[in-house]
């Protein structure tokens, strides 16, 4: 087991890089079933710091239309949890950036929670985002096993999350915190307003023990650079799925998209 005694890749990333972190989300099995591996490779080549792969679910309530549509297509393509774990193994042959799997609880529960945790780690996964897993449920049932496996569970917070709860989530978190930019589903907005900037400042001033990445509504170089000024970096999802949907040449389009995003910083 090479994962034992090796530092979790998420921890390593945040130790080495404190700002301008770019994490990109895409749905497994989209646009076609076996694109997952190629997209991950291209993202690393393009200089992305972290990769989030979505486990498609039939009823993704926290996602806007773009990711919903990609999930539906991925399921229609035949995507399954088992296949995704095989694809991650394949990705790990060449990709060294941290990999996070993001998905709703039900498909993971059907696979078996503990079985999923250990198979994910064996495949080379560093962290999970399960948006509909309650914080309390994690603490009482899953924290111990995930810690044992050195698998990170990443929590979301939003502008309506209370100070108390942010502190509790910070205490229970390892790796980073996913700060949802607005009260919204994914992909809803194009720029930040005053309230959002105030919320980012509030988070910054808290001096949390974990760094935070800003996600939801990061769609272009302006929003990416604004996110980088307020947090350790950002997560891009829907905007990237849109690129994939329209793409005739995935490698070229990924390179161009990532270059454009990064052109606003430094």
């Amino acid at each position: 087991m090479e994962t034992i005694n090796v530092m979790n890749r998420i921890d390593k990333l945040f130790q080495q890089k404190k700002e301008n972190i770019l994490s990109v989300f895409f749905t497994a099995g989209f646009p076609t079933l076996h694109d997952t591996v190629e997209i991950a490779k291209q993202l690393q080549s393009a200089g992305v710091d972290m990769i989030e792969i979505g486990i498609p679910f039939s009823d993704p309530i926290a996602d806007g239309p773009v990711i919903q549509q990609s999930s539906k297509q991925a399921i229609d393509n035949g995507m399954t949890v088992t296949l995704l774990l095989e694809q991650v193994k394949e990705i790990r042959k060449t990709v060294s950036v941290p990999i996070i799997l993001m998905g709703y609880l039900n498909p993971v529960m059907q696979y078996g929670m503990d079985r999923f945790f250990s198979d994910a780690v064996a495949a080379g996964v560093d962290g999970l985002i399960l948006p509909d897993m309650p914080f309390e449920e994690f603490e009482s049932h899953y924290k111990q096993e995930m810690d044992r496996l050195d698998l990170r569970n990443i929590f979301l917070i939003s502008p309506t999350t209370s100070d108390d709860r942010i502190e509790r989530i910070d205490q229970a978190s390892r790796g980073f915190i996913y700060a949802v930019s607005s009260s919204s589903t994914t992909g809803s907005k194009n720029e930040f307003d005053e309230n959002q900037i105030r919320y980012f400042k509030r988070l910054k001033d808290k001096q949390l023990k974990n760094p935070f990445l800003i996600g939801f509504g990061i769609s272009n170089k302006e929003t990416f650079s604004a996110a980088c000024q307020n947090g350790a970096g950002a997560i891009v999802g829907s905007a990237f799925i849109k690129v994939l949907s329209a793409s005739k040449s995935i490698p070229n389009d990924i390179l161009t998209f990532i270059k454009t995003l990064n052109s606003g910083i430094k």
């Binding site: 679910f57 039939s58 009823d59 309530i61 399921i75 399954t80 949890v81 088992t82 709703y104 609880l105 039900n106 498909p107 993971v108 529960m109 059907q110 696979y111 509909d132």
Partner: peptide
């Protein structure tokens, strides 16, 4: 159905082997 999670609660749910509703 089998136990699963949909619309915010754990309950009996008609779903595929892979957990799609």
């Amino acid at each position: 159905g089998k136990p699963g999670v949909l619309h915010g609660s754990k309950t009996l749910l008609m779903q595929t082997e892979d957990g799609q509703v």
